[in-house]
Amino acid sequence: MLELGQGNGATAPADSDLIKDVSEATFMADVVDASMTVPVIVDFWAPWCGPCKTLGPALEAAVTAAGGAVKMAKINVDENQGIAGQMRVQSIPTVYAFFQGQPIDGFQGALPQSEIEAFVAKVVEAGGGAMPDDGLEGALAAAEEMLEAGDAQDAAETFAAILEQDTESVAAFAGLARANIALGALDQAEAVLNGAPAAFADAPEVEAAHAQLALARQAENAGPVAELRAAVEADPSDHQARLDLAQALHGAGEVEAAVDELLELFRRDREWNDGAAKAQLFTIFEALPANDAVVLNGRRKLSSLIFA
């Protein structure tokens, strides 16, 4: 398992009904009552527990991959010592599976990914369900939803857990890199991309992640937007200031405004600095989905300038 962060200590995934942080006050409703209709896996953990940081994300990914056939409750033993005592939790991580109000299975300590998957599948079967054929696809979709919702830490952990199950998932490699970029862990993102199989080098997902990383590196060194905008207004022919402004705007999340500045720079001098405006536009386009409105409009305007 890749070491990515606080594991169980992170925010719950986007599907808050599937994986929940549970307390003594909600244990009856979220575990006992919920298990009357679908099995519930209970993960007892603590922020200081090293193995918990490995087990938690892997278990969450396996539960997500089950497509709703099982739920998961996460209980911080430091904050819920009463319920941990009642369940006779003597070491962590400790995992129990409940069905129809009763514990039916469990284990202690971190397990290999294959054994985690087997445990979840067994619990699903005990509840009368079946693992979906597209389990990993479901986990990938859930991780993408987490990333889109701003839960980059959870997304990174889920992508990493998916890679434990499928070391050739190009979507998971790219997703893990993008999640680390969102976290500001640019060196980690670069390490992920450098560690991807060579066959993935030309995959659109990986190329997009490389472009996002390049833009994030630029943003680290970008100047204040207000100052750069003032410089451009003072001297519209200052091409370097306009390029710097575009990079700063992109770093500030103003992607469309960045594209507009680059188009203006291209209009003024398309050959300046070895075609820097066009190169920067292509980097932005590559970092975004092909059907993004900014990409579609930007490419159309660029084509108009090229063939004007």
Rank of each mutant, 00 (worst) to 15 (best):
N8L: 15
A10T: 12
A14I: 15
D15S: 07
S16R: 15
I19S: 06
V22E: 12
V22I: 11
D30V: 09
D33N: 14
D33M: 15
S35C: 10
F44S: 09
G50K: 15
G50N: 12
P51D: 04
A58T: 10
A61Q: 14
V63N: 03
A65K: 10
G67C: 03
I75R: 03
G85C: 07
T94S: 15
F98V: 02
Q102A: 09
I104L: 01
D105C: 00
F107N: 07
L111V: 13
P112I: 11
S114Y: 06
S114P: 04
S114A: 15
V123W: 03
V124Y: 02
E125S: 13
G129E: 01
G129P: 03
M131A: 05
M131I: 13
D134E: 12
A149Y: 00
A152V: 04
A156Q: 09
A161E: 07
D166S: 08
V170R: 04
R178Q: 13
I181L: 06
E190H: 00
A191V: 10
N194D: 15
A196I: 05
P204T: 01
A209Y: 00
L215V: 12
R217N: 14
A219C: 09
A222P: 06
G223C: 09
V232D: 03
A234V: 02
D235G: 10
R242F: 08
L249V: 13
E254V: 00
A258M: 05
F266W: 12
R267E: 14
K278P: 06
A279H: 08
T283G: 11
T283A: 14
A290M: 08
V295I: 12
V295R: 04
L296D: 02
N297H: 09
K301C: 02
I306W: 04
A308L: 13
A308I: 06
